[in-house]
């Protein structure tokens, strides 16, 4: 390939990558906005952080906290109890996080029950995503 072709290809790839990030951000914003609307009050990253980092006694004994598996370093990988790596939770480390509503709902459904012994409220989900998206 000629240098100009390579330059053009690189440029196109760069634009596509930017577009991918932009659409990911759009999907994430939509999800968070829908939780905010359902909650009916402003979301709080601080509340989300406290919920995520906290230890809870109402859920299943093996999973007292989100950080049992996700660890307290959200920019690094977590680890399931079965030993498998979990992709980072921080959006800065994993830009595709929280862009698929069905995926987000599926894992909130499972993990809120595991850790808290109940469903999370829209406010809690919105708080958590607000915090994790800021990391």
């Amino acid at each position: 390939m000629k240098p100009t072709t390579i330059g053009a290809a690189t440029g196109i790839a760069f634009i596509l990558a930017l577009a991918g990030i932009a659409s990911a951000a759009g999907g994430r914003d939509t999800i968070i906005a829908s939780y905010a609307a359902a909650a009916g009050e402003p979301l709080s990253a601080e509340r989300g952080k406290a919920l995520f980092m906290g230890t809870h006694s109402s859920g299943k004994p093996d999973t007292p906290s989100c950080i049992t598996c996700h660890t307290d370093n959200l920019k690094g990988p977590g680890k399931t109890r079965a030993g498998k790596e979990i992709e980072p939770m921080a959006v800065s480390a994993n830009p595709q996080r929280y862009t698929d509503p069905a995926f987000v709902e599926k894992w909130f459904g499972r993990n809120c029950n595991s850790v808290l012994g109940r469903e999370c409220t829209p406010l809690e989900k919105g708080d958590l995503l607000t915090w994790l998206s800021s990391l």
Binding site: K60, D62, T63, R81, N113
Partner: peptide
Amino acid sequence: LPDHFGEDAS
């Protein structure tokens, strides 16, 4: 699956 070895895997 809601109690899959101590986790909810529904």
